Simulated assay, not measured.
Amino acid sequence: MEGFLHPKSTNRAFVMFTEIELEEKIHKLKQDLIQIAVTTGINSQDTICASQKLDQHIMTFLKLSYNIRQRK
């Protein structure tokens, strides 16, 4: 199984994610976003932050997925 190196490392050590782990993380963030939006409102700062975090993970997944497929 292919792995992804997470580009945002806090201490120069890369964290390894598999494609499945990233997909699971994105799914969890989607669920969290829905719950936050229901609780605090669609335009709340908490909802916006959760949405941005989800967007970052989706973009990371898409970029890394594209790069791996280009190498094949």
Rank of each mutant, 00 (worst) to 15 (best):
S65C: 07
S51G: 09
K72M: 06
R12N: 15
K28V: 06
G41M: 05
V15C: 12
T10M: 09
I26G: 05
L54S: 08
T47A: 15
N67L: 12
L62F: 11
K25Y: 01
G41K: 02
I34G: 00
E19H: 09
G41C: 05
M1N: 12
L33T: 03
F4N: 01
T18D: 13
T39F: 02
R12Q: 13
K25N: 03
Q45H: 06
I58R: 00
R71T: 11
I68V: 06
S51F: 05
M59S: 14
N11S: 10
L5Y: 11
K25D: 01
L22A: 09
H27Q: 13
A13W: 09
V15M: 13
V38Y: 07
N11M: 10
M1Q: 11
H57D: 08
Q35A: 15
I58A: 04
N43W: 03
D32H: 05
K63S: 10
I48Q: 12
T47W: 02
M16P: 05
L22R: 04
Y66F: 12
D55I: 04
I36S: 04
L5Q: 07
I42M: 09
A13P: 00
E21V: 04
S65V: 01
Y66V: 04
D46I: 01
E21I: 04
F4D: 00
D32A: 08
I26S: 06
D55N: 13
Y66N: 10
E2H: 10
I58C: 07
T40Y: 15
T10E: 13
K30Q: 14
I48W: 03
K25F: 01
D55Y: 06
F4Q: 00
Q70A: 04
E24S: 11
L33A: 02
T39P: 01
Q70R: 12
S51N: 09
I58S: 01
